[in-house]
Design a protein around this nucleic acid. Structure first.
Lengths: 225, 225
DNA sequence: GGCAGAATATGATATATGTCATATAAATGA
DNA sequence: TCATTTATATGACATATATCATATTCTGCC
């Protein structure tokens, strides 16, 4: 069992507030797990009873809409925690987590984390701030979905993907989403998404290399948003 | 200056976790204020530096979209707190608060509240849970905006308004929103909202009495959502 | 009481987006 | 390697929704 003390990604999450003793305790009770691309980490409605710490990889958090379509609410990556809201609310998770690439995740049971809450003020403040950031972001996304056109949302999402996950040496977006996933992030039909990507390609905003996408004219993309 | 100890609405918010001493301190540093219908309590981008406790009345929290339209993110009523996210994140508020009716609100400066955070675990847990509830709700709304039709959103919103704010003796919705506000809650054009209300009226789902609305067929409205 | 401005209502039309059909390309697995 | 499935692409069309124009009704106010 690897030590949490030496885990670098810990520095990027609320866990950075934990001291040596707490980290030792953490390492003792955590379990590690490899998650294959496409595998489900947890599903909407499930009782998770703890949080996941993402050591490597990216996953999507989706919510099933009554119309039967999944909507991607958020992408979560290395260094971030999963399941905090559910744990604090003491409710089942409201989102499904699915790996977009092979992942390494650690699971820490609820009672351990709740102990830190009581004793380590900085830790609970960090968690709070993270959740507050999520709330702000979610409110903003809600307004985007309600008020922006699909075209605007697509431009915005492409910029977000490059900003957050970067690009490969050949300039293509590092994170690899299917057209279907991209559509379910911006809240539109897959065909509409593909069509708009074609338009963007024709008008020189992006370049499509098979499934890969290169952002060619970032200033124009930004102006669209 | 009225005493917080005797304030009933306190029982409905995170503040219920405060003990007598804390309530006395609270009463000493709070300021009360009457807010007229239509008046702005705070505006997006402002530094509020504290929280508001709503003693009476209802307000809307809106966010300005780049297209120039306001979107109503949430309605907040008697007993609830305003500005918690901003205070914890230590950021300007991301939403604008405007009174929908005459209101009574109390303002408590940030440093006072932050003191309670450190010393009263139950209080900070309450605040956390509230924010977690807001996040869950916001994620759900985001998916609604992205995946549901305007008609479905209208039906859902009407049911929500009756559930949350109740009805008058003549069965009309207690909370009085303009068509414009209703439209900006469901994320559509005012004309579309009015048109759909007319449709709902014609098909017997609701009854329109001037500006007032009566829900006539709740089971059918529920089935639409 | 009557007038100005706002809110509500409705029609005509444009546009964005969804849906269905089908083709092609890519990935997967026996 | 080939066959089968899955992802991407595009056309044709239907539909939801926005926009613009114009009544009509309501409301506050002098």
């Amino acid at each position: 069992m690897s030590k949490c003390e030496q885990c670098i990604v810990r520095e990027f999450s609320s866990l950075k507030a934990l001291n040596k003793d707490e980290l030792v305790k953490l390492a003792e009770c955590k379990t590690s797990r490899l998650v294959k691309k496409g595998e489900v980490i947890f599903e909407e409605g499930e009782n998770v009873n703890g949080i996941f710490c993402i050591k490597d990889g990216v996953c999507k958090l989706t919510k099933l809409s009554p119309n039967g379509k999944d909507h991607i609410v958020k992408l979560v990556t290395k260094g971030e925690l999963l399941g905090q809201r559910s744990m604090i609310s003491d409710e089942p998770v409201n989102l499904t987590a699915v790996a977009l690439e092979d992942m390494q995740v650690c699971f820490v049971p609820k009672n351990e984390i709740m102990g830190f809450f009581d004793k380590n003020n900085q830790f609970s403040m960090n968690v709070m701030k993270t959740i507050c950031g999520d709330l702000k972001e979610s409110d903003s996304q809600m307004v985007n979905m309600a008020q922006k056109t699909v075209k605007e949302r697509l431009a915005e999402t492409l910029l977000y993907l490059q900003d957050t996950f970067g690009k490969n040496e050949d300039e293509t977006l590092k994170i690899q989403l299917t057209r279907d996933e991209l559509a379910s992030m911006i809240g539109t039909a897959t065909e509409s998404c593909i069509r708009l990507l074609s338009d963007f390609n024709k008008s020189g905003l992006i370049e499509i290399k098979g499934k890969k996408i290169i952002l060619k004219d970032i200033p124009k993309l930004k102006k669209m948003v």
